[in-house]
């Protein structure tokens, strides 16, 4: 069943790159672009980004996050328990798995519910929208912070184990 493991790893990488790529897009490109657009008096503003780009980016973002986690869980297979229990050598991939799991919960439990208010998919007045925008922004920044060690531990489980022994 080596082919199955390869397919799981492939899907994990494809979905993971889509997820984290969009996370970095939000943090490195969209957030500063929106700030610049809002500060640009007389400019076109950021409404077009919110209306046309954000819903599509969030669609791929949240589903890629789920697919990444499911493919990662499948890939762990019998090591799932020992990884999440941070036992022995599996503590390395386990730390990555814990960070990825917290990030997934952040996407579906904090970022997406708040972005629904920003997008107008959930009723909210202007004050609630502003609060939701700030909460989603900070949750997205927290996920960016967590992604840095997460990627190290994911990579270190196959390459660089010696660093931890």
């Amino acid at each position: 069943m080596e082919w199955l493991s390869l397919v799981e790893r492939w899907v994990h990488f494809l979905a993971g790159i889509t997820w984290i790529g969009l996370l970095y897009y939000f943090n490195l490109v969209q957030a500063p672009a929106m700030a610049a657009a809002n500060a640009d008096q007389g400019g076109p503003g950021g409404a077009g980004i919110t209306k046309y780009v954000l819903p599509r980016a969030l669609l791929w973002f949240r589903w890629a996050a789920l697919v990444t986690w499911l493919a990662g869980a499948a890939l762990l297979g019998e090591r799932f328990g020992s990884a999440f229990a941070l036992q022995g050598q599996d503590a390395i991939i386990g730390m990555g798995a814990w960070l990825g799991t917290i990030m997934l919960l952040n996407v579906w439990g904090v970022i997406w519910p708040n972005q629904k208010k920003v997008l107008g998919l959930k009723p909210a007045d202007d004050a609630a929208k502003a609060k939701a925008r700030r909460t989603a922004f900070l949750a997205s920044r927290v996920n960016t912070v967590l992604s840095i060690p997460m990627l190290l531990f994911m990579g270190a489980s196959s390459h660089g184990m010696a660093l931890f022994s």
Binding site: N27, L28, P32, L86, Q87, G88, Q89, A91, I92, M95, L138, R141, V142, T144, V145, L146, S147, I148, P149, L152, F153, L163, F164, S165
Partner: peptide
């Protein structure tokens, strides 16, 4: 005090610091 997460460099540095802390934790577990 300004929230480090409001700046992209504050976010990246926070991630690097967390990486160092967690690497020490994991090294203790392996």
């Amino acid at each position: 005090m300004k929230n480090p997460l409001d700046s992209i460099w504050g976010t990246i540095i926070s991630g690097l610091v967390l990486t160092a802390v967690l690497a020490v934790v994991v090294a203790g577990l392996v």
